[in-house]
Amino acid sequence: MPKAEIAKKTLLGVVPVDSPFYRFHPATRLMLLVFLSVTPLFVDLPEINLALIAVALFLLRWGKVQLGQIKRYLPLLFTVALFMFTVAYLAPGDRATLTPFKLLGLTFYLEPIWWAFVSYCRLIAMLFGAILYFSTNRERDLLVALRTIRLPFAASYVLALSLRSAGMFMEDFATIREAQQARGLDLESMSIADKVKLYTMYAVPLFAVALRRADEISNALFARGYTLSARPATGGKRSDYLRKQYRVLARDWIAIAAMGLAFGAVVALRIGWGAFTDDASLLKALFRWVVGA
């Protein structure tokens, strides 16, 4: 008798099988990714983008994803922030037209710092949309979704294979690192410079393994009759068994319609009425008040 499955291994983590996300068709979940990732492009107002981040976090919680998994992205969030605000500080633009303010004895300019914050909120909102999707979906879900929206098979398969390769690359990296640690490499006592040197050393075996894997996968694809045209030996249409295991239900149409309407409204309001600019931001007013500019 098949064993009862309790969790699904997704592209970025593990999610219980009873996650409410699995009540929706993979294409609906892909639409959610598109909605959460594209909407911030039309929104400058940081309050809205922060709200989208909150929505993504709520959906992660609702989808029974352990929020502890998010911790691993903190270094990324911090690095992006550091980079954006450093650029805004070091290269603010034409200083004569900007509003200066003093903080910790340093001179900053309000406009570039504020714009860095606006852009950061937008970027992080998009990133959380992606984290939500890849934490709750498997490669199979992505394949089904792409086939449902009628993306050519070759394109969808190459995309799925690329995602899988990224996971394999990380696994190979971990294996090489464990092998080095097993032979006495003490990462904790190393200086940052030594660690950087070590990471460059990883490149050689990783590159060799990646080449070997590419070769193996290419042979495996040939062995199983894969061709780029994806036309089967019979010459007819390619079977699509995987896609037919899923049905688009009424709740999927409702969710897609709701997201489509919300997205359409954002685009119309932005383009037609100039809404969602940062002029109306309360955070901006607060920021000005705090820095006294």
């Binding site: 294979l161 199983r224 894969y226 089967p232 068994y241």
Partner: peptide, 29 residues
């Protein structure tokens, strides 16, 4: 069947692994 089974895996679940070749050679759904 390759000597190293991992060398021939092209999917992320066993079912898709078995399914992959069937779709390629045009087995009816």
């Amino acid at each position: 069947v390759f000597g190293d089974p991992e060398a021939q895996f092209t999917a992320l679940t066993v079912e898709e692994e078995i399914l992959f070749g069937l779709e390629n050679i045009g087995v009816p759904e």
